[in-house]
Amino acid sequence: MVETGMHAGQLMTLVIIALALGMDAFSLGVGIGLKGIRLLDILKLSALIALFHILMPVMGIFTGNYVGALLGSVAALAGGGLLLLLGGHMIYTSLRGGAVTSINPRSGWGMLIFALSVSIDSFSVGLSLGMFAVDMLVAVLLFGLAGGCMSIAGLMLGRRVSSSLGEYGEAIGGVILFTFGLLIIF
C-alpha cells in the first residue's frame, strides 16, 4: 500500500515537471503561431519538440552527476539566450518589414533551433532525475507528451489570434519569446 502511494506521488511529481517543461513549448508555440503557420508545420514542429523533450532528458541522465552540477545553470542560460535571440530577431524583422530575412519555423534548421531552445532545460532535468530512483521511461514519455501537446496548443492559439492581429502578430510573438528568455535568464 505504501509503495502504491509513493508511486502515485512520484507520478504526480513527474506530471507536474512535464507540464512545467511544456510551458516553454506553449509560449514558443504562441509566438510562432502569431507569425502564421500551416497545420502540417504545426504537426511537424510539435513532433520535433516532443522528440527533443524525450531525447534531452535521456542525454542528461546519461551525462552524469558531475557534469550535471557544472552544466545545470549553463543549460538554462543557453535556452534563455536562444529565446532572447529568436524573440529579438522576430521583433526586428517585423519592424523592418520584408527587408530582413526571418528564421523560418517551417525550415529544417528553423524547426531544430526552435525545438532546441524549448527543450534544453529538459537536459538539466534529466541530469537531476539521473540521481533519483525514478522510472525513466515514464518520465521521458511524459515530458515528450507534454511538450508535444502544449506546443500544439500554443501554435493553434497563436495561429487563431494572428488573423486578428495582422502584421503586428510577429512583433507580439517576438515580445513573448524575448520576455520568456529574460525570465529564464533572470
Rank of each mutant, 00 (worst) to 15 (best):
F26L: 05
L55Y: 06
S73R: 15
T4I: 04
S124H: 13
L51D: 05
L77K: 09
F143L: 11
I17P: 00
V30T: 05
G108V: 08
T13R: 02
I184K: 15
G166K: 04
V134G: 04
G98T: 15
G147W: 05
G87L: 06
S73H: 05
G80S: 10
A47R: 06
V138C: 09
S122F: 03
F180T: 10
L70T: 09
P57K: 01
I42G: 02
M56A: 14
A76T: 13
L157N: 00
F123H: 14
I54H: 13
E3S: 15
G169W: 00
N104L: 05
D24S: 13
V138Y: 13
L145I: 11
Q10V: 04
A171F: 02
S27V: 15
A133L: 04
H53L: 08
M56S: 13
L157S: 02
L19R: 02
I184F: 07
F123G: 13
L70A: 06
S46H: 02
N65Q: 07
L95K: 08
F186T: 11
L129Q: 12
G110K: 01
A47T: 15
G22P: 10
R38S: 10
G98P: 09
F186I: 08
M156W: 07
L77P: 02
I42P: 00
L129T: 08
I91S: 07
G144M: 12
L19S: 01
A69E: 07
D24Y: 01
V125M: 12
I185T: 09
A25G: 10
M90V: 04
I61A: 04
L28V: 02
T93G: 12
V74Q: 05
I172G: 10
S151H: 02
L28N: 04
I113P: 00
M1C: 02
S94W: 07
S117L: 09
G147S: 06
G98M: 11
P57G: 11
G147L: 04
S151M: 06
M23D: 05
